[in-house]
Design a protein around this nucleic acid. Structure first.
Length: 387
DNA sequence: TCTGGGGTCCTAGGACCC
DNA sequence: TCTGGGGTCCTAGGACCC
């Protein structure tokens, strides 16, 4: 049977949810990411009305405010977006048993062999779009192709509310005329190298032998580009993900120079991570810390130990010693981050091996963290004074 | 207008073992 | 006598994604 994939991508997702929840925002430029006065905020999503002004994702909010002074600026609410996302994903599940969610606003559906139920892929796509709109009020752009990679690029071709079908066998022809900026997996750095070498369209890359591409871009990236312009799926998009991590970070409005202040922020981050971690079913022996200095140089350190992390105290203790190894006093710190790596499924035997008290301790800690979430200032002070 | 936050994957090199 | 090769685990940094 011939494989067929659908990529579905919600249009201007966060902004659309806001316009749905606030009818007075409809038809107006909505910019989610922060308020104009927020230092160091960037745009997460701009509604199509805002994009007309040149506002786009990843742009500093301050710049967006300059380009679009009449814009409606919002900080956004992830909980609400996740709620809406879940509704949409549930609808997707009605069209295929194989749904692979890529992020909060997009997913791949393997629709191979669904003709009997929904008709040809184009009919299925139309039904899916209509169903999403009817039940959630959101529009979704859809790409259809014989592999995920091309389906993903196709869904971006006719946004918003798009539907783009690449007939089987037409993948390569579809890719050839695209500008290199459309290549999914070639970001800022690669785009710069492409530009320097005079590559403008995928056809320019297509003319190059694989070895030549490898010489310019390195073995892995060269091979990736060689295959991408031929409309071939890269394995990385097919395999299930292995390792996982859980992290949190904070960029400060103003650079911090005081070590105590930075370490307090680190403690705050630890609480955020630990709360999420204790609610999950993961265990981890690896912690990492990340420091970004005023000049944007970023360094990180990680450490794996024998025993899995079980308490906030342990996590903070390990992170603090890593932090102190890396931190250079006197340099302004603009960001501090931390996390747990190599997440593995919990090993029940191991858990019992370490004392029963750890279970009680965990429960106690979880409820404390829950309370702390409600009164962050008081909690931080209290914790700090213990150390 | 300086550049968020939460992730994944890749690479190169070191440590250690056989 | 200073010396091979393969496997595994780990770390730091960087590219990329939404």
């Amino acid at each position: 049977m011939r494989s067929f994939f659908l990529h579905a991508d919600l249009d201007a997702f966060y902004a659309s949810v806001e316009q749905l929840d606030h009818p007075e925002y409809r038809g107006k430029p909505v910019i989610v990411g922060g308020f104009p006065g927020d230092r160091r905020s960037v745009v997460s999503t701009a509604s199509y009305e805002a994009r007309v002004y040149g506002v786009h994702s990843a742009m500093p909010v301050a710049e967006a405010a300059r380009l679009c002074p009449e814009g409606i600026f919002l900080r956004g609410s992830m909980d609400r977006y996740r709620e809406k996302s879940d509704e949409v994903m549930a609808i997707f599940s009605g069209f295929s048993p194989e749904v692979r969610q890529l992020s909060v606003d997009e997913a791949f559906l393997d629709i191979t062999g669904t003709e009997g139920l929904f008709g040809p892929p184009e009919d299925l796509a139309k039904k899916l779009k209509a169903e999403v709109r009817r039940r959630t009020g959101l529009t979704v752009s859809v790409g259809l192709a014989s592999n995920k990679y091309v389906a993903k690029i196709a869904s971006g071709m006719s946004k918003p509310d798009g539907l783009c079908i690449i007939p089987p066998g037409g993948e390569e022809a579809f890719m050839l005329d695209l500008p290199v900026s459309k290549i999914w997996g070639a970001g800022g750095k690669t785009q710069e190298v492409l530009r320097r070498h005079g590559f403008k369209t995928c056809r320019d890359i297509h003319l190059m032998p694989r070895e030549k591409l490898a010489a310019i871009f390195g073995q892995a990236q060269g091979t990736f580009l060689f295959r991408a312009v031929r409309g071939e799926a890269a394995e990385t998009f097919e395999t299930e993900r292995g390792s996982r991590s859980m992290s949190a970070e904070r960029t400060f409005s103003y650079d911090l120079y005081d070590e105590f202040e930075i370490e307090t922020a680190l403690l705050d981050i630890c609480q955020t991570i630990m709360f999420r971690f204790l609610s999950s079913s993961w265990q981890s022996r690896t912690v990492f810390v990340k420091i970004r200095y005023e000049d944007f140089t970023t360094l990180s350190a990680r450490e794996t130990q024998e025993r899995p992390i079980t308490t906030l105290n342990e996590l903070y203790g390990r992170l603090l010693s890593l932090f102190r190894k890396k931190y250079q006093a006197g340099r302004g710190v603009r960001l501090i981050g931390a996390g747990l790596g190599n997440l593995e499924t919990k090993d029940p035997e191991q858990g019992d091996l370490f004392d029963m008290t750890s279970k009680k301790e965990k429960l106690l800690e979880k409820s404390i963290l829950e309370i702390n979430k409600k009164f962050p200032e008081a909690a931080l002070k209290r914790l700090r004074s213990f150390r």
